[in-house]
C-alpha cells in the first residue's frame, strides 16, 4: 500500500487506532466466513448422505435439473464476482466513478442471478410439482441448500446497495474502506459456495 492510502485521522496523522481496529475486524470477518462455511458444509454433508442412502439420483419421478439454464445463471453470478473485484480495485486506485459503476453492475448481476433462481424455482414447483416438503429428500436438500445460498446472495445485494448509498455520501475514503473490503470478501465467498453447489447438484 502506498503512503498516500494510509488511513488518516481528522488531524491528518496516521490513524493507528483505525489500522489496528481494521485488523481485528478483518480477522473477525474471516472467521465469520469460516463458520458460515461450516454451516453450508453441514448441509452439503446432509445432502450427500441422503443422496447416497437411496437409489440413484435424482430419485425416480423427478427430472434431472436443467443444467444449461443453471450454467447461464452461474455465469451471471461469476460475472458479478469479476465486477466486484474491479470495483474494489478501482476504489483502491481512486477511480471513484468507475468504482460506482462496477458496484452497480455487481448489484444488477446479483439481482439477475436471483431472478434466474426465482424462475427456476417457479418452473420446478409449478411445472414439475417439486416442492420443499413434498418431494422427499430431493426437494429437502435442493431447496434448503440453494435457498440458503439465495438468501446469502440477497443479503449481499442489500449490503452492496447500502455500500452504494454510503459511498455516495462519502463515508469511505482512500485510507478507510473496510466496509468495501468486507463486501468484496463476502461476495467472493458466496461465489465460491455456488461453485460447490452447482457441481454437486447439477454436474454430479
Amino acid at each position: 500500500m502506498t503512503a498516500a492510502s494510509l488511513p488518516l485521522d481528522s488531524h491528518g496523522n496516521v490513524d493507528q487506532l483505525y489500522i489496528e481496529t481494521r485488523e481485528l475486524r478483518l480477522q473477525g470477518f474471516l472467521l465469520f466466513l469460516v463458520s458460515d462455511c461450516v454451516l453450508f458444509a453441514s448441509f452439503i454433508f446432509a445432502y450427500l448422505y441422503l443422496r447416497n442412502s437411496g437409489q440413484g439420483w435424482p430419485p425416480p419421478g423427478i427430472q434431472r435439473l436443467d443444467v444449461a439454464f443453471a450454467a447461464w445463471n452461474s455465469v451471471v453470478l461469476f460475472g458479478s464476482g469479476a465486477t466486484m473485484h474491479y470495483a474494489l480495485e478501482n476504489f483502491k486506485h481512486g477511480n471513484f466513478m468507475r468504482y460506482m459503476w462496477f458496484l452497480l453492475a455487481t448489484i444488477v448481476l446479483g439481482a439477475g442471478f436471483l431472478g434466474g433462481q426465482a424462475y427456476e424455482y417457479t418452473h420446478l414447483i409449478y411445472g414439475e410439482h417439486v416442492t420443499w416438503w413434498g418431494s422427499g429428500i430431493f426437494g429437502a436438500s435442493f431447496f434448503t441448500l440453494t435457498g440458503m445460498h439465495g438468501m446469502h446472495v440477497f443479503i449481499g445485494v442489500c449490503y452492496l446497495t447500502v455500500l452504494v448509498l454510503q459511498s455516495a455520501a462519502g463515508v469511505y475514503t482512500r485510507g478507510k474502506f473496510f466496509g468495501i473490503t468486507a463486501g468484496t470478501l463476502y461476495w467472493h465467498f458466496v461465489d465460491v459456495i455456488w461453485v460447490v453447489l452447482f457441481s454437486i447438484f447439477y454436474l454430479l
Partner: peptide
Amino acid sequence: GQQMFAQKCSACHKIAPFDEKV
C-alpha cells in the same frame, strides 16, 4: 402407485428384472 413407489420403495427396489438388486 407409481408415485408412491418413487417415494417409498425406490430406495430398495429398481423397476428392473429380478436379478438387478439394490
